[in-house]
Design a protein around this nucleic acid. Structure first.
Lengths: 157, 157
DNA sequence: CGAACTCGGACAGTTGTCATCCACGTTTTC
DNA sequence: GAAAACGTGGATGACAACTGTCCGAGTTCG
């Protein structure tokens, strides 16, 4: 029950992209966060495949958000990296062993799986309520407006 | 972001133990669920270390719940197996790179980690609201009371 | 038109966890 | 006191996560 470190990187990158004025290369994003360039590129490709960011190639290319930051939820980013599958996988062991559950009683998922999935739904609802724009606003509130000004300056130079 | 299969086994075992009249050996629990004996034993050991179940050794030994099933939540079982640590681990990459966040701005956890942890708290709250007794009652409601009667008979014989 | 820069994908190597199996010490029963 | 059954701990193999390198396709600037 552990989340990939790439999720943290991806969310931070989305916040940076929400403040950038033009496309930002993957190399620059990795340099800014002090993480592995090649591995971050893999995660950015996943974000692009999910339609959250778009890449422009060429001399002044890079990545940019495809939607306004207010319309990109943290859940979107997490699912783009980790996949949309449920963390709990029911293997239906109630159908194993010497006293297996009868098939007509297995039309509904077993109560254990239902409880687990309900909890995961609560988790998803909580993440869906936070957008990239909310996170950026939180950073600006905590550290002041000059933070993103400096960021834009570093991205340009 | 995947949960160990041992969680499913552990919860099922707790439901069985809540219906047993005496100690149940690990071998019998594994046999009943059709899973590996030695690997299940390791998870039962973790449940014992967490204080949820207790082992009695010897000729007629086995495992039994230490508390009434209504006072054991699904969250207790999940945390006994998976550990109580958070799934999202903040590596503070905001302090890396050419524009690191100043230390006085890092006294609070960053907004990304706060959003992730709030979602995990919602997940935990949901799991804490369901007890082993609730799950057992659900099985009895879905499959009828003869299910646990047959279970007790098989455990005795 | 060519050089420099970008993403995109394939490949090999390392690490850590999950899942499994086997041998040991302890306790109860006969 | 010996045998059987139990839980306990360490050793083993399989699998995904993580990291770096390489080459190809496309775009922009001089």
């Amino acid at each position: 029950m552990k989340m990939s470190a790439g999720v943290e990187w991806a969310v931070h990158c989305c916040v940076v992209l929400s403040q950038a004025e033009g496309p930002v290369p993957a190399t620059r994003l990795a340099e800014f966060h002090g993480v592995s360039r090649t591995y971050l590129a893999k995660h950015l490709q996943q974000l692009a495949k999910a339609g959250l960011i778009a890449a422009t190639e060429g001399r002044v290319g890079g990545y940019a958000l495809t939607r306004p930051a207010a319309e990109v939820s943290v859940l979107d980013v997490v699912q783009a990296i980790e996949g949309a599958g449920a963390a709990f996988q029911c293997t239906e062991i109630r159908q194993n062993g010497p006293l297996p559950a009868s098939p007509e009683n297995c039309r509904r998922a077993c109560g254990i799986a239902r409880a687990m999935w309900a909890a995961e739904q609560a988790w998803r609802d909580s993440l869906a309520a936070v957008s990239i724009a909310d996170l950026a606003a939180g950073v600006e509130r905590d550290t002041g407006p000059q933070t993103f000004v400096a960021l834009r300056g570093w991205l340009a130079g």
